[in-house]
Design a protein around this nucleic acid. Structure first.
Length: 877
RNA sequence: GCGGACGUGGCGAAACUGGUAGACGCAAGGGACUUAAAAUCCCUCGGGUUUUCCCGUGCGGGUUCGAUCCCCGCCGUCCGCACCA
């Protein structure tokens, strides 16, 4: 007997070739079936794919293949997020052109993805660095400009001195550039902005409609948008204390109800008043400098003491001209938010309390919890920010917080100061406009020409795309477009005079904010989208990617979709109907005695007295096994997808990746685990081989099955079909796989129990045919190559990729006999095996008959019997 | 500091959101086959007792006939953040 081994190294390329040559996964926009768009976040072409990609794309492929099998016209495309800094860094290091580097990487990674056997429509492949893509982006920029969605303004920006570029606020992490790690400086530049803040309220409101998004992501976006309702209040500067031209200070507060608890006012170190007061006040200037030095790092601020500098200026209380408050410059007040000035109510804000305690400013509680006596209510170290009634607040006393807020607002709104109301209600958002200007080469050029006479002039549509010049060098930092000898010099499209091109390029988040729409008709040359086609496919039904994009990419895409709809390129609001954020791939770490990290590939595992130990393959020395961590180059705990696929095959890699953990949690990649998956591949291959020998011919209709064993097989099959489909629908790949294993285990057992050829009746053979076909089709989304090979072995002529998902007969899937636990006083004491839907009376009677129950009843009658049909019987003694 | 999530065997996890805790797998141990190994197959596998039960879902309470699930209070781990007034 020859060894019945499945060889993925031969089989996988064979079927990949078949799918490619047959155009199996090409998607027609005019397909008659209902549409389903599944998309995984497209990769940056960094050079090689990593295991995180394998996990991401394996999940998406299961969904794509499953949906195709259940009758949908599935769109499942792939492309490249191909602009960005690494290409320029590589250009500097290796003296290669960013385009060369990028397209080489794309070629490598495309090959790697193809070796995974993904059911992608490669005819729709796009790369964002290709002029055929970014020309449309330039067109849309101009459309946005014409529709008031673009702004050009001077603003203080985060300047990364190493990368010589501007960073979005979001790209500054702990005061450092998110890529270079350099300390970020503040610079004033004229920048292009997309007016995402016009959509703050809408982006916030529409989060509620995204019911197939993780709650966590919606919450993160909600906090990011950061809506607050508050009051702008103008405080007069007491003339006697005034040292500048300013006559008032305006604050923004969300707690106007606490106005009678005010003890001080604090302004930001960047506040105009602080700046003018610092002139001729070295002490204040020193304090302001100190604030700037402190930086904005969260870690610093967390531990930083609340500090302030008394300016000597005093403001009068809006409700009492005889009541003045000291004005401090404080290190915890931000200029960007509100007005850059606050009034401090120490009793009801922890930061204000910390500050007041440090400077001996005292506190007066003005909100008293309902269950506390106001006479004894005292604040010392912990501010009270809960609900309650107003106290110590004159005309507000006794009111609820909400009523007090309204009352204060009403009174101050109606009061006039210098011809304007004393206060105004205002809704504030944290969300700021999206600065898209980047001072670099490898990005989409902003299609604008600057003319001394005409200002910023859009590049005429006929002149699009504005292509990047190819003859550039990277021997110096800064933007090669800026120093290119000819590229930026053009005639003004309006007046014809010499003018210069905008040399900034767009943030790469712009590129990824609409690629999902381009996939719907990537062949369209004269427009970004074909509106009808895009509106049919969109929104993406299932989007899958990493949690790291929870805010930026997803929020920008939501904005962009609206902006594209406003400019006529789309007719929808939300780009992603369903969102799934998958967990990371993590691995053990290995460290040699001298502290060097070793790669998993450099390690051999052995078991010594039941204890796992690691040894270096090179030296044979024992290596200590460290904690499980995210795969990273620094810890060298990475495994290479090429190696894994070369050794075990893509199916095994995909299977293990999906089987071992819930998809939203981290999965630990382990050699033992992947070997287990490889064993199972062989097990399935043998099982299908056995079934192929005895099964009725392919295509034999199945009906009139009455024999017990055959019926058992059918029930088993249909029951599992129903469950597996349900798990996949809910993206519970790990439990779907557990069910598949249960089915194959059960079928193996049944075949093993067959003693004689007489037991293989025609009915039995028919049931085996049905079971084998179903099993193969159900693991096909995870292990498509093995499935094709098995499908062929089972005698089918067409490919498994075209076969419909097994149809479930509900009558067969339902269990007629079930076992119901019987408890006495909540503890399980027995079990009833009884027909499904038996009524409560019968269940109770049968349960009371059980020996174990009788014994515990000890001749007494039960106090109470709880019966939940099909669930449980509980006898209370 | 603020916000969120999570805590179940040696390990990854399951358990229809109140109804048999530990499915499925990994690791381990024992056995069969083999000259041997690999592969394969069978058995055991939460703890304590040994053939009767008892204890077990981070800890302490509570609600309930019944709690991994709900409530209150702790402890621990992880993640996000722009001190957002």
């Amino acid at each position: 007997m020859f060894s019945d081994r499945y060889n993925p190294r031969e089989t996988e390329p064979k079927w990949q070739r078949f799918w490619e040559e047959s155009g199996t996964f090409k998607t027609r926009n005019d397909g008659p079936q209902p549409k389903y768009y599944v998309l995984e976040m497209f990769p940056y072409p960094s050079g090689r794919i990593h295991m995180g990609h394998v996990r991401n794309y394996a999940m998406g492929d299961v969904v794509a293949r499953y949906k195709r099998a259940t009758g949908f016209n599935v769109l499942h495309p792939m492309g490249w997020d191909a602009f960005g800094m690494p290409a320029e860094n590589a250009a500097m290091q290796n003296n290669t052109h960013p385009a060369t580097w990028t397209y080489q990487n794309i070629a490598t990674m495309r090959g790697q993805l193809k070796s995974m056997g993904l059911s992608l429509d490669w005819s729709r492949e796009i790369a964002t660095c290709d002029p055929s893509y970014y020309r449309h982006q330039q067109k849309m920029f101009l459309d946005f400009l014409a529709n008031g969605l673009v702004d050009r303004k001077k603003s203080k920006v985060n300047w990364d001195p190493v990368d010589m570029t501007v960073l979005a606020n979001e790209q500054v992490i702990d005061g450092r550039g998110w890529r270079s790690g350099a300390l970020v400086e503040q610079r004033e530049l004229t920048q292009w902005f997309l007016k995402i803040s016009d959509y703050s309220q809408e982006l916030l409101d529409a989060l509620q409609t995204l019911d197939r998004w993780p709650e966590k992501v919606r919450l993160m976006q909600q906090n990011w948008i950061g809506r607050s309702e508050g009051l702008l209040v103008r405080f007069d500067i007491a003339p006697a204390s005034n040292k500048t031209d300013a006559r008032e200070i305006e604050v923004y507060t969300t707690r106007p109800d606490t106005l009678f608890g005010a003890k001080f006012m604090a302004i930001s170190a960047d506040h105009p008043l602080a700046k003018s007061l610092a002139v001729g006040n070295p002490g204040l200037q020193a304090f302001i400098d100190e604030c700037h030095r402190m930086g904005t790092s969260v870690a610093t601020l967390e531990t930083a003491e609340k500090k302030g500098y008394d300016t000597g200026v005093r403001v009068t209380h809006p409700f009492d001209p005889n009541w003045t408050l000291p004005v401090y410059v404080a290190n915890f007040v931000l200029l960007d938010y509100g007005t850059g000035a606050i009034f401090g109510c120490p009793a009801h804000d922890q930061r204000d309390l910390d500050f007041a305690n440090a400077y001996g400013l005292g506190n007066t509680p003005v909100v008293c919890p309902l269950d506390v006596d106001p006479a004894t209510f005292v604040i010392t170290d912990t501010a009270y920010d809960g609900d309650g009634r107003m106290i110590n607040s004159r005309f507000l006393d006794g009111m609820t917080i909400a009523d007090a807020k309204n009352d204060v607002a009403r009174r101050l709104e109606s009061e006039t100061l210098d011809g304007r109301p004393r206060a105004a209600r205002q809704v504030n958002f944290k969300l700021r406009d999206w600065g898209i200007s980047r001072q670099r080469y490898w990005g989409c050029p902003i299609p604008i020409i600057h003319c001394d006479d005409c200002g910023s002039v859009p590049v005429p549509e006929d002149d699009l795309p504005v292509k990047l010049p190819e003859d550039v060098t990277f021997d110096r930092p800064g933007n090669p477009l800026e120093r290119h000898p000819t590229w930026k010099h053009v005639a003004c499209p309006q007046c014809g005079k010499p003018a210069t091109r905008e040399t900034d390029t767009m943030d790469t988040f712009v590129d990824s904010s609409w690629y999902f729409a381009r996939f719907t008709d990537p062949w369209r040359e004269d427009a970004p989208t074909t509106r009808r086609v895009a509106d049919e496919w969109l929104p993406v039904n299932q989007y899958i990617g990493g949690i790291e994009h929870a805010i930026l990419h997803l929020l920008y895409s939501r904005f962009f979709t609206r902006a594209m709809s406003k400019t006529g390129h789309l007719g929808i609001a939300e780009p992603f109907e369903g969102l799934f954020t998958q967990g990371m791939v993590v691995h053990e770490t290995y460290r040699s005695p001298n502290g060097d990290w070793l790669q998993p590939a450099e390690i051999e595992m052995r078991t010594d007295n039941g204890v796992r130990k690691a040894f270096s393959l090179a030296t044979g020395n024992e290596i200590s096994i460290g904690s499980v961590e995210k795969m990273s180059k620094s810890k060298r705990n990475t495994v290479d997808p090429d190696d894994i696929i070369g050794t075990y095959g893509a199916d095994t890699a995909r299977w293990f990746m999906l089987s071992d953990s819930p998809p939203d949690r981290d999965v630990i990649w382990s050699e033992e685990g992947v070997q287990g998956a490889a064993r199972y591949v062989q097990q399935l291959w043998r099982l299908i081989g056995q079934l192929a020998e005895i099964a009725a011919p392919a295509g034999t209709p199945i009906k009139d099955i009455s024999e017990a064993t055959a019926l058992d097989i059918r029930r088993l099959t249909h029951r599992h079909c129903a469950r597996i489909a349900d798990h996949i629908e809910r993206l519970r790949f790990n439990t779907a796989i557990a069910e598949i294993r249960k089915l194959s285990n059960a079928l193996s057992k049944i075949l093993g129990d067959v003693q004689s050829p007489e037991q293989m009746t025609p009915q039995f053979r028919l049931a085996c045919r049905e079971a084998a076909d179903a099993l193969v089709l159900m693991f096909a989304p995870m292990m498509p190559h093995l499935a094709e090979e098995c499908w062929e072995r089972l005698g089918h002529s067409g490919a498994a990729a075209y076969a419909p998902w097994p149809k479930v007969d509900p009558a067969l899937a339902r269990e007629d006999t079930i076992s119901i636990p019987v408890q006495v006083n909540g503890k399980k004491r027995g079990e009833l095996v009884i027909e499904r839907d038996a009524d409560a009376k019968l269940l109770e009677a049968e349960a009371l008959k059980l020996d174990d129950v009788q014994k515990l009843l000890n001749g007494q009658a039960a106090k109470k019997v709880i019966v939940v049909p099909n669930r449980i019987v509980n006898v209370v003694v």
